[in-house]
Amino acid sequence: MSLPTILFWILAVISILSAIGVVVAKNPVHSVLLLIVTFFTITGFYILLNAQFLAVVHIIVYAGAIMVLFLFVIMLMNLNASGEPQKNNLVKFAGVVAGGLLLIVLVAALKKADTGMLIQGSTNIGLIQNLGKVLFKDFVLPFEVSSILFLSAMIGAIVIGKKD
């Protein structure tokens, strides 16, 4: 096995174990910390694919900003295992079905995906110049529309927050 393959398997094991840990952990703060570990392993995959920009943005946005806010809210609400409201079985069952359906859709979509581009090191699509050109030349309209979506979500959050 080559070094990238070994690294891939180590990262894969850690990411799956920590992802299971997110769901299983009783303490919400532990869940969040395990989710951060999962994000780190995903960053590792990006680096193995030579996508340095994606890797570092993934760290800055997800691990550095979004998860800090998660942790923030959980700490402020002082959630713990005993105070957590127990949902009834019907809701839990619905959750399992919905999650399973999502899994089927994802597997079906990814099964036929073309992985030829992803042989380690042979792709430069994750480097910032290439990514910028693709985003602002080929996909400029979807990119701008999604940014407007984000902006409207932010304004919506402020409007809801200001109500009282």
Partner: peptide, 20 residues
């Protein structure tokens, strides 16, 4: 690395976890 300055930003944004 060709994203040097972003690397620094990434690591700095993780430092806050030490505090939290």
């Amino acid at each position: 690395v060709n994203i040097g300055i972003l690397y620094i930003f990434g690591v700095v944004s993780l430092g806050v976890y030490g505090i939290m």
